[in-house]
Design a protein around this nucleic acid. Structure first.
Lengths: 344, 344
DNA sequence: CACCGATGTGGCATCGTTACCACACGCGTG
DNA sequence: CACGCGTGTGGTAACGATGCCACATCGGTG
């Protein structure tokens, strides 16, 4: 006797058809029973559930997506997972996405525009419900918008879509005001780039605070440097060698703050007696050193969560007006800022 | 005149059919032209490529997966993305996966076994090609193995599948030997859990080193504590209050090391003069404080990369024997370890 | 008793893609 | 000239799930 018609290769994963056969009903009924939509007799529903359980049936998400023409996956594209800011952001997105029944496809583009565009293509290929991105340029969002995929830019924005950011300008201004209030007049800003909204807004906030305080140094203390800690260290050593050296340094991010801190250590300057230091972006080490570093704490997790909410709203109503969420950030005063030595 | 048969709703994404129509050939030919498999005249191939380009065609990855019965996505399940170890691991996986043409679905289970199992279900639902997991228990891997999905356990292992780990026991032993060589005899181990292979192996290595050096303290200095930094801080303060207090402390991970460091600061003990400190797992702050903390540096990125290679090998040959990759880790001597004060 | 609505069920087309098959051509060979 | 072979092309059936439609049954009502 040959293979029976109802036998099933145990290596193959069970499909709806298998469950239907096992329960002795049609595929249609099985589908309805499992999804809970439409009429199904209670007895049948139970029989089907039992059959599904017995066969270890797990519905094929891709087949379902294909048929229903909607996906329950969102794409997330960040610049560098090894940077805690992006990792926290991703964690926030992951958590919130899951509570809404979405899964997350995560890509780390390593700061490469080619990788970034390739990732965007991959999201289109999987017909992601939407994409959350910390963009390297405006291209990704434009491409995705052209493909009619909802996008939310996070941290920095290029304007073609919704965004979730913090108010970099006003926070940078508050930080600078804090230093001015302590009595500082020569305040340097160490910053890497001002091409993105994050950098340019922070620089603008700094400049504005100085201007309003009547401190006009023609931007002589606005120091552009490379992106990594050692670049910042060298740049800091340079400005601290000037005759009229600054009494306070504002580092535009935590990596630069590390460089500033190391430079101060190299030169044997005491913080905050000889030099006040503030960082835009918190980092764990800032609570471990003494004195602790006064820092702006962005809640990257909250940023990720907000991005998910914004994205889902956009998916809900694709034709709504562009929306920009602006989140707040807190300044955490620690020991690294004090009045300059000459003052008061 | 009505809608033409060839017109296409511009809001709908282009499909193979649309490209075929545009190029004036059949779907079969179009598919062959784009995939490069089978005979297609050069002229036709170009015409099809042009049509695809013009329509912004991106193949539907899910439809393809469904038809070909293989997926190009791997699932990654980690305990906590906000922990740099897992973030680096994920970054390594992401990078290596991409070079092999795979995309990554990342889930962060927040240390919850329910979330973990739910995530595993999601991976089955999307018919992931394989899964990489830092497991909370043996259940996930067992479930996935039952579903015939290749799995690789990373960092810790429960044994039902392939794994990529470091040699916790021998490294812990080397660390302890290092302290013994410096002249320490009373060496405490501060550890959170010993249920997973990571913890139990580290404890075993520590114990073995002591035993072989002829130091027998009946495990009096093996201190179990809660998992977070403050628990470790309190536990450390307790052991340092003992009459025969240890001259060196070995923290079983970086979070515990933070607690130990803070405890030393609280008690006004100088490192390494009054107390030597070593950490299993490096962290950025350990290079920022002075003295720097001697630490074991695991290359989490390499761990992730190795996991991908192992997984792909398993996908290639599903019936191969179980394989366990053991990676090395380096001990980075910094300033926090020295001979005890009484010695030499 | 004809008819209606509520309740249940099964058949079938469909989503976008690929793989298999059949077929059609042109050319060289026995 | 019949045949085979290398090229090139199109038709069609799947993959697994869903949703529309038709149909069947039952009780109650005019």
């Amino acid at each position: 006797m040959g293979q029976e018609a109802t036998s099933r290769d145990p290596l193959r994963r069970a499909t709806l058809k298998d469950v239907a056969r096992q329960a002795g009903v049609s595929q249609s009924t099985t589908s309805r029973a499992l999804s809970g939509e439409g009429y199904v007799a209670a007895a049948v529903r139970e029989r089907v559930a039992a059959a599904a359980e017995e066969l270890g049936y797990v519905p094929h998400a891709m087949a379902r997506s294909l048929r229903k023409q909607v996906s329950r996956a969102i794409g997330v594209l960040v610049s560098d997972l090894r940077n805690p800011f992006y990792a926290d952001l991703a964690a926030g997105v992951a958590a919130r996405a899951r509570t809404h029944g979405y899964t997350m496809m995560l890509v780390d583009d390593q700061g490469s525009p080619e990788d970034e565009l390739a990732a965007a293509q991959a999201f289109v290929a999987t017909r992601s419900a939407g994409v959350i991105v910390t963009p390297l340029s405006g291209e990704v969002s434009e491409y995705l918008v052209r493909q009619h995929i909802p996008v939310v830019e996070v941290d920095r924005q290029f304007g073609a879509c919704d965004a979730v950011v913090i108010d970099n300008a006003s926070i940078a201004r508050r930080v600078t005001d804090h230093l001015i209030a302590l009595g500082h007049r020569r305040i340097a800003l160490v910053i890497d780039e001002t091409n993105w909204t994050t950098g340019s807004d922070r620089a603008a906030g700094y400049t504005k605070a100085l201007a309003e305080a009547g401190i006009d140094d023609d931007g002589a203390l606005l120091v552009s440097t490379g992106w990594d800690a050692d670049d910042a260290r060298k740049a800091t050593i340079d400005i601290l060698a000037r005759r009229d050296r600054p009494t306070a340094i504002f580092a535009a991010n935590s990596l630069l703050a590390e460089g500033v801190w190391r430079a101060a250590a190299d030169l044997g300057l005491r913080v905050p007696d000889d030099l006040s230091v503030v960082s835009f972006d918190d980092a764990q080490w800032m609570t471990m050193v003494s004195p602790g570093i006064t820092a702006v704490a962005q809640d990257a997790v909250a940023l990720g969560e907000a991005a998910v909410e914004r994205l889902l709203a956009r998916i809900e109503s694709p034709d709504a007006e562009q929306a920009i969420d602006v989140l707040d950030a807190r300044i955490l005063p620690r020991g690294s800022t004090a009045a300059p030595r000459g003052a008061a």
